[in-house]
Amino acid sequence: MSTTPAAPGDHAGRLGGRSGPSLPDLMAGATFVVLGLAFAIGGSQYDVGTALRMGSGYVPIALGGILTVLGLVIVVASFRGVDPTVANADRGPIPWQRMGLLVGAILFFGFTVGGLGLGPSLLVTTFLAALAGHGTRPGRALVIAIGLTALCLVVFVSLLQLRLPILGDWLGG
């Protein structure tokens, strides 16, 4: 994590006017509440057991409850002031598109590496990932993708001898 001190940013400050809640705190707290509840409710489907012989659900329910409470405290606190660590961070807008490309690249790899094999799967993955760069045009992304794929094949297959097929079943490799 880079924690370079930076000028106060406008994106991470308060929502709307001065009296509104601190958006980052509100979102963080809400996320914890949702996840805490999800784990607690999910955990209640397993055997809870007793304190003597705890079942599979005991600890998840307890921890989920704690997380929910902590999340609520953070939500309440968000109406009272801005966490100084967030207020001072210089934040740009969320790069949705770039994030989508990166996530797509990784998911594509996970779905296809077994079927297509390392070579073709990696080529598409690195191409999609490279497109996420600022000012990277498709042509340049293709060059980056070819270069990186070649590099990775050399490093992982030739040097490290990972047992990954370069061409997968789908391509008759």
């Binding site: 690249a105 996970g110 590496v113 490279a130 996420a132 760069g133 990186l148 990954l164």
Partner: peptide, 21 residues
Amino acid sequence: YSVLFPAIIAFASIGCYSLGL
């Protein structure tokens, strides 16, 4: 950086996959 981060994505994907296929 435009070359670096796709490389990290590639390494991360291969590395994590190779642990247990």
